[in-house]
Design a binder for these strands. Structure first.
Lengths: 234, 234
DNA sequence: CAGTGGTCTAGACCACATG
DNA sequence: ATGTGGTCTAGACCACTGT
């Protein structure tokens, strides 16, 4: 009861609607009563009903269209929200002590595969940074990152010995778009060495591309140590 | 311009606020003006400002607390939303033809590790279903699933030869809570055979546990074929 | 205790998509 | 043409929480 007395809140409406969907009272693909009718049923204003249904639609339970009305989605298009924390926060949330170490950093002509991947011109420079993230002294993540110099000219003066490229970028460059992928890859020689596992071992891997207003900013591959899992609940 | 004339919409406010954050005009950790002041600046009502700021907080850009006010989050706690489609939809979205095949299905006493994982009593029965999902004739996903019979008694009559356990469950049992994990595992003998890849190969793997009002319903392991990646943009 | 966000009301106009 | 959701206003009361 967040609301004072016995008014119907948008939360109550959300719960009731969800319960009706779960109980089968409102079948998949069926049409709900319109907002005005629900407002009468719940004795509240249409505004309140609107908020409840709008949020349920955002969460993937309903589909709403003007004039067509509100439908129960047959295959609940449920979305898992994964919070993507910075490595430091992730380690500290595990109760560990975060430690960062630079492996190498160099500016060079962008390799062909990267030009293709980021739609760079063939003569553009990138800074290639490799680094490690530790939980105490246990390897946690090996990071392989390329930063487009034309998009972030200041990067040539960055000191990646003392700060991780990700944290530096967040402080320095805003971004507008991100593509994030996860996959399983196999440990090559250097991944195996840095993460302390046998060559060929499965490695949970994240790839992240970041743009600022259409300009590619950075491409990062993140290799996680053995046993890592990305989890969410809803 | 979704709104008729030149009124300020909550979308405009969101964009303006984001722009100010990105430009550094509003620094991380700094306090925004309160809703009343912003309403005056944007010449709209507080309700409209509230909606804009509330959504930005939902999206992880702001932190709002009564009395304390609204702050710019220093490390934008950005959340990636992955849509978790049903396998059939995923295959069809790739332009392929979905095909399902049952591998085995049997009811038995729940194994110890599963009892521990789902907090079952040691004498509870589960139905163990193994099945394959194909894209045309190419292996797409190998699924290993256990369904708690006490939670879904009808399962003993289900015909998993003609319908996949996931689709059957969605049609049959509502759920209230889900835990979803992703990890990289290595192909054992049967995974390798079903997915047509060498033993020991990295396999992108999903694990999903579903509850209904605290009752465990099902545990599923989903092994994806080589090259699979889970992607999102934001 | 006082300031801030959280929510609701009652009403209005409008955009959009369907029939 | 019309019904439905999308959004805004103007105002109100309240819940929470920092001082």
């Amino acid at each position: 009861m967040t609301q004072s007395n016995e008014t119907t809140s948008y939360r109550d409406i959300k719960e009731t609607v969800l319960a009706r969907i779960r109980s089968g009272q409102w079948q998949p693909d069926s049409l709900l009563p319109n907002e005005q009718e629900l407002a009468v049923e719940f004795s509240c204003t249409r505004t309140t009903v609107n908020r409840a249904l709008r949020e349920l639609a955002d969460e993937g339970f309903l589909e709403r269209r003007r004039k067509a009305g509100t439908r129960v989605l047959s295959a609940p298009q449920r979305q898992a929200r994964f919070t993507i924390p910075m490595v430091r926060d992730e380690v500290e949330a595990l109760g560990g002590t975060y430690r960062y170490a630079l492996v190498s950093s160099a500016t060079k002509r962008a390799p062909d595969w990267l030009c293709a991947r980021l739609a760079l011109k063939p003569d553009q420079d990138v800074m290639h940074v490799r680094c490690m993230h530790f939980n105490g002294n246990t390897p946690f993540q090996y990071e392989n990152r390329w930063i487009v110099v034309d998009s972030v000219p200041q990067v040539v003066n960055a000191d990646f010995a003392s700060i991780g490229p990700n944290e530096w970028l967040i402080q320095t460059v805003p971004f507008t778009n991100v593509e994030l992928s996860f996959l399983a890859s196999r440990a090559d020689e250097s991944m195996a060495a840095f993460l302390d596992l046998p060559i060929g071992e499965p490695v949970f891997t994240g790839e992240r591309i970041t743009w600022l207003e259409g300009q590619p900013v950075t491409f990062a591959k993140m290799y996680f140590a053995a046993g890592y899992r990305m989890t969410t609940q809803y």
